[in-house]
């Protein structure tokens, strides 16, 4: 094959131009990657409250470091890794904080979403496994973080970065892999009130669920408010109306509360989840709207010590104000 000098120069030029193009596109890709890195923002929302953060801003927040690894659904173990990131509690605090009636939804760039409960985020309620035997093992404190560093390096895109969920545990423990969401872009605090049932027992029985109670406790239905001597506002349904659901065969039609039975006299027993109970004569309750079974305090669902329901009202002693109510029983003579 004979090639003239002119053709050779032409070929070399073509090759050089191609190389320049390749180099250029490679540089362009790199700079585009850098741009993406700089632009990546984590969006945190809670209702109308929105907070966005760049990766650098996340790295400037107080960080947690520790070990974590995962048990994949295939049964394989990955890790443990040395991890660094920001606690989800800390991130939640930027939009008002996580409380027992919120859940935390983590949304990834590919549209995958995973919801964590309050107990998981705040109490570390996960199962931990021995990475060798894969058997469940007890654990101490576990922390859920939004990790940006693993084994001293930024988390690569292939590794689910730049931001992924990780659960910090003891070095010799791993957690279920499905919690370790990759490519996290958004964290949303969503309402997640826990379900409960109030058992009403008398001439008939009823299991009143949370939705039914809250519907009945709404303004314009049977909802009432009462302010105690500390200025706290309690919200709920008068006890006598709940008694009226089961004092005879008529739960809710017309005059559900049977006044005639009041004259005959009977008692009402309010029972807490732990078995503690208080018994009151119906004469102390009948038609009194200021003695109520409350489900809200100052506009919020009750704190854990009283949740889900507490008896409050005018003239009741401290011992009579039963919290964590599970059952109300009508005791006929």
């Amino acid at each position: 094959m004979k090639i003239s000098i002119r053709e050779l120069i032409k070929e070399i030029l073509l090759v050089l131009v191609s190389l320049l193009l390749v180099a250029n596109s490679s540089l362009a890709l790199q700079s585009s990657d850098t741009a993406v890195q700089e632009e990546i923002a984590l969006k945190i929302t809670a209702g109308d409250t929105v907070k966005t953060l760049t990766l650098d801003e996340i790295k400037e927040m107080p960080s947690l470091e520790g070990w974590g690894g995962r048990l994949r659904s295939s049964g394989d173990i990955e890790g443990p890794f040395a991890l660094k990131g920001v606690s989800l509690i800390e991130l939640g605090n930027l939009v008002g904080g996580i409380n027992p009636d919120t859940a935390v939804k983590v949304i990834s760039r590919d549209g995958y979403a995973m919801t964590f409960s309050y107990k998981q985020i705040v109490e570390g309620d996960y199962i931990t496994y021995d990475p060798v035997s894969k058997q469940e093992v007890p654990h101490e404190e576990l922390q859920t973080i939004l990790a940006y560093e693993t084994d001293g390096n930024e988390i690569t895109f292939q590794g689910g970065g730049p931001l992924r969920i990780a659960i910090l545990s003891a070095k010799n423990q791993v957690t279920d892999g499905h919690w370790w969401c990759k490519w996290v872009e958004e964290i949303e605090l969503i309402p997640a009130p826990k379900e409960w049932t109030l058992h009403l027992k008398g001439a008939i029985e009823e299991n009143m669920d949370r939705g039914t109670f809250e519907s009945g406790a709404s303004e314009g239905c049977h909802g009432v408010k009462w302010v105690d001597d500390k200025g706290r506002e309690w919200e709920g349904i008068p006890l006598w109306l709940l008694v009226g659901r089961v004092d005879d065969e008529n739960p809710h039609e017309g005059k559900a509360f049977n006044d005639a039975l009041v004259q005959e006299g009977y008692e009402v027993k309010i029972i807490a989840g732990d078995g503690y109970s208080v018994t009151l004569p119906i004469s102390a309750i009948a038609r009194k709207n200021n003695i109520l079974v409350a489900y809200k305090l100052n506009g919020q669902f009750l704190p854990e010590e009283y949740w889900p329901l507490r008896l409050v009202g005018e003239g009741l002693t401290g011992k009579e104000q039963v919290g964590q109510i599970k059952e109300i029983e009508v005791l006929f003579p």
Binding site: L71, Q135, E136
Partner: peptide, 15 residues
């Protein structure tokens, strides 16, 4: 547990 495969381990251990 997160999958059918990972149920095997607690069955084997008696958990």
């Amino acid at each position: 547990r997160n999958s059918s495969v990972t149920l095997v381990f607690p069955l084997q251990s008696g958990d």
